[in-house]
């Protein structure tokens, strides 16, 4: 971003200083985390279903409301006399409009009713297949110690060297990696569905939102993140959800952004996961090469594996970037 001749203020410094100001205000609570979270979610209530995983019932209710056709056409006009002409035309044609509107309204209502029935049947199918209540799994996870990513913390922090902008760690547990990222000067925050872990991280001065990782990623705007660390939930995804995650990363991370994913190895996962997790989880950890395939299909590049700082490390960590 070259500036014109005569510029005395370096805009790169201005940007850095703005980021620093935001960090400071977040840390002091002047920018409340609750407000940011509320703003993250606010627009999702109004977007069409499928954009961010909206509520089917809500969309259906809106469709039913929209099925009502108002035959009383607005007649106001800024031009003198035109309002009167419109009013006369409305009076003349209301009987005709009402006749048409009644028929169109019946069709729209019947379609909405059919959709509602279809929705109920889809819900039955979902319940009968592997839709698992994430809350149930979170409750089960909360009974165990938070996962430690100590062996990967150096490698993860190193992957974000020089990254400017917000980095999210989803799921961050009690925040050990998050703390390391913050120490390295990275503007990182966390998302953790287990409330007790999120509260513990917040007590340590970290910014952590209690939310499902996937839900949080869906709600973010396009290109708003400079980087993402993924751990935990990526070991429990069904194939469809894993493909969705790769697509979300390509959409939500800005060009040049960095993505790091850590996961248990599929061959050892059965030994480390709890029985409930093994029984209830819709998916299982993927091999690193499978993530490579998913990431590259989504348009990410520079895929490579990271080395752990300890021989005790389990699983793997991979890194990819979104092309400029």
């Amino acid at each position: 971003m070259t500036e014109h001749e005569g510029a005395t203020i370096d805009l790169d410094q201005v940007r850095a200083s703005i980021e620093e100001e935001v960090r400071r205000r977040r840390a002091s609570g002047e920018i409340p985390a609750d407000l940011e979270r509320e703003l993250d979610r606010a627009f999702a209530r109004f977007v069409p279903m499928g954009t961010t995983g909206g509520d089917f019932e809500q969309v259906l209710a809106r469709a039913e409301q929209a099925a009502f056709i108002d035959v009383l056409v607005p007649v106001a006009s800024a031009r003198p006399g035109v309002g009167l002409v419109k009013r006369a035309l409305r009076k003349l044609f209301t009987w005709y409009m009402r006749y048409i509107a009644q028929q169109v309204g019946v069709v729209a209502n019947e379609l909405a009713r059919a959709l509602r029935m279809l929705g109920e049947r889809v819900t039955d199918v979902e319940n009968a297949t592997q839709q698992i209540d994430e809350v149930l799994l979170s409750r089960e996870r909360a009974t165990r110690p938070a996962p430690s990513l100590d062996a990967w913390a150096d490698a993860i922090t190193g992957a974000f060297a020089g990254v400017k902008g917000r980095v999210v760690h989803a799921e961050c547990g009690t925040g050990p990696v998050l703390a390391r990222l913050r120490e390295a000067g990275i503007d990182a925050y966390g998302v953790e569905p287990v409330e007790s872990w999120a509260i513990e991280a917040t007590r340590l001065g970290l910014e952590v939102r209690t939310d499902e990782a996937l839900t949080h990623l869906r709600l973010l705007g396009r290109g708003v993140l400079a980087g993402v660390v993924l751990s935990g939930f990526v070991e429990r995804l069904s194939t469809g959800r894993a493909i969705e995650v790769a697509g979300l990363l390509a959409a939500k991370v800005a060009p040049g952004g960095v993505i790091v994913l850590t996961s248990a190895d599929p061959s050892t996962w059965a030994r480390t996961a709890s029985p409930a997790e093994l029984d209830l989880t819709p998916g299982r950890p993927l091999h690193a090469d499978t993530w490579r395939l998913l990431f590259e299909s989504a348009g990410l590049k520079d895929f490579r594996q990271l080395s752990a700082s300890s021989t005790q490390a389990t699983g793997y960590a991979v890194v990819a970037t979104r092309p400029e």
Partner: peptide, 20 residues
């Protein structure tokens, strides 16, 4: 906006955009 004709941001989260 090249040549510094605007303050360009790589991040438009509410906190950053409003601070800018």
């Amino acid at each position: 906006l090249s040549g510094g004709a605007g303050l360009l941001l790589d991040d438009k989260t509410p906190a950053v955009l409003s601070a800018a």
